[in-house]
Each structure stands twice: as structure tokens, then as C-alpha cells.
């Protein structure tokens, strides 16, 4: 068993639109170790979100291989991919993506229900995750009753609740003001210190510096890898 959590080899993603081929990703090689905090940076349209979708098993590569936790996952069926997403991956989206008519607690509990976890365990896990992000007191609120920063904290709690192997964050501060953005970045840093593996897409170099390593992507290729200085 290796210490590599995510391993991409020659991953290519081609979109076909009106018979026009768009190469979103071209021959991506990437190796992310357990407990690592990696930031993926690059200008808008460079392919970072596509890469994150492939990492999160929301999308499949056109070519290449993807090994997650020592298991090849690029050719799995839809239900198998859903099961892995549920157990191994936690998502944090730019626009929070909380479900509007579920309470904070129900939003956090939601991925655990898909796992078939008993209610008592779900309650414990969801409460713990909410406490961890400092939102335990807002459990019965609806997302619309929270500020943007608070909603993103809830989204982080939801990603954490199932104790996934990796947290994938897509521009987690994109919809937040700088104060709330800093606060969320602080939260991710604390989670990393606690042992979480985090892969974060961002175009903000300030936040990229929070990571151990930054992978720069341009036109669908990895153009530079930069190890951040200890912070």
C-alpha cells in the first residue's frame, strides 16, 4: 500500500461541441499524497474545474488512468462512482450548493443518508462536523437564514461529515468577502493540520499559498509545480 492517494497518468479530457473538439485537459500527470494540501491554480478556462470534476468522479477522463486510494476508478459504473464519491470524497463548492429547503443539520446529514448509516451515527457525525466548523448553534436554521461565510462553513461540515479521504474545494472563497474568505481558508488549514487531504482549485495566489504545493495549469496542461514555503 503506497502513501499516494490520487494518481493521474496521462489524463486527457476532450469535449465535443458541434463537431468541434475542445481539449480541456491534455496529458495530466499528478500524484497527491495522503495528508497533502494541494492547490491547483491557473487562469479562468485553463481546465482546473474540469480536473477537479475528474478528481471528484463527477466526470470521466477521455484517456488516461486515475487511481484513487490504490484503486483504478476511471472505468467504474455510475452507481460505483456514486458510492466512492459518497465515501471517499468531500466536495466544497464556490456557491456552497446547500439545498434550500433542508435545514443546516439536514444538509450536513444528507451524504450520510446515502451511505445507509443508522440515524444515531448520522446524528453524531453531523453534529461533530458542525461543531468542528463552529456552526453547531445554527443546526436548525435554513441556508437562506445564514450569511455567505456561514453557508460555506456548513458546506465544509457537509464535506467533512463522512470522513472522506480527500476534500475537493472548488474556489471555496469565490463567493465570499475577504474576511469570510480568510476565515474559510483558516478552517481548511486547521483541517489539514488535523490530517485531511485537501485539493483546492483557486485562481487567487493569496489563498494558493495556504497549500503545501501549487500545481499551475495553463491550456489544460500542468505548466509548473511549486512547493510552498512552510507557513
Amino acid at each position: 500500500m503506497s502513501d499516494s492517494l490520487i494518481k493521474l497518468e496521462g489524463v486527457t479530457k476532450v469535449f465535443l461541441t458541434d463537431e468541434v473538439e475542445t481539449h480541456a485537459l491534455s496529458g495530466i500527470h499528478m500524484d497527491i499524497k495522503k495528508g497533502e494540501y494541494v492547490s491547483i491554480a491557473g487562469p479562468s478556462g485553463c481546465g482546473k474545474s474540469t480536473l477537479l470534476s475528474i478528481l471528484g468522479l463527477l466526470d470521466s477522463p477521455t484517456e488516461g488512468s486515475y487511481i484513487l486510494n490504490d484503486r483504478p476508478v476511471q472505468g467504474l459504473s455510475l452507481p460505483e462512482r456514486a458510492r466512492i464519491r459518497n465515501r471517499e470524497i468531500g466536495f466544497i463548492f464556490q456557491s456552497f450548493n446547500l439545498i434550500g429547503d433542508l435545514t443546516v443539520y439536514e444538509n450536513v446529514e444528507l451524504p450520510l443518508t446515502y451511505r445507509g448509516m443508522p440515524a444515531a451515527e448520522r446524528k453524531a457525525a453531523a453534529t461533530e462536523a458542525l461543531e468542528k466548523v463552529g456552526m453547531g448553534h445554527r443546526a436548525k436554521h435554513l441556508p437562506s437564514q445564514l450569511s455567505g461565510g456561514q453557508q460555506q462553513r456548513v458546506a465544509v461540515a457537509r464535506a467533512l461529515a463522512g470522513k472522506p479521504a480527500v476534500l475537493l474545494a472548488d474556489e471555496p472563497t469565490g463567493n465570499l468577502d475577504s474576511k469570510n474568505g480568510d476565515s474559510v481558508m483558516q478552517l481548511l488549514a486547521e483541517l489539514h493540520k488535523g490530517g485531511a487531504t485537501i485539493v483546492m482549485v483557486t485562481h487567487d495566489t493569496r489563498f494558493a499559498r495556504h497549500a503545501d504545493r501549487t500545481i499551475h495549469i495553463f491550456d489544460g496542461r500542468v505548466v509548473q509545480e511549486q512547493v510552498e514555503q512552510a507557513h
Binding site: L78, A82, R83, N86, N97, I99, G100, Y114
Partner: peptide, 15 residues
């Protein structure tokens, strides 16, 4: 979008 979120969180098609 909600269904997309649920699927991203691991909801299987049958769910």
C-alpha cells in the same frame, strides 16, 4: 441543480 448536488454528495441513480 439540487439533484446534481445530491449526486455529487454520493446519491446513486436509484436514490
Amino acid at each position: 441543480r439540487e439533484i446534481g448536488i445530491r449526486m455529487a454528495l454520493g446519491a446513486e441513480p436509484s436514490a
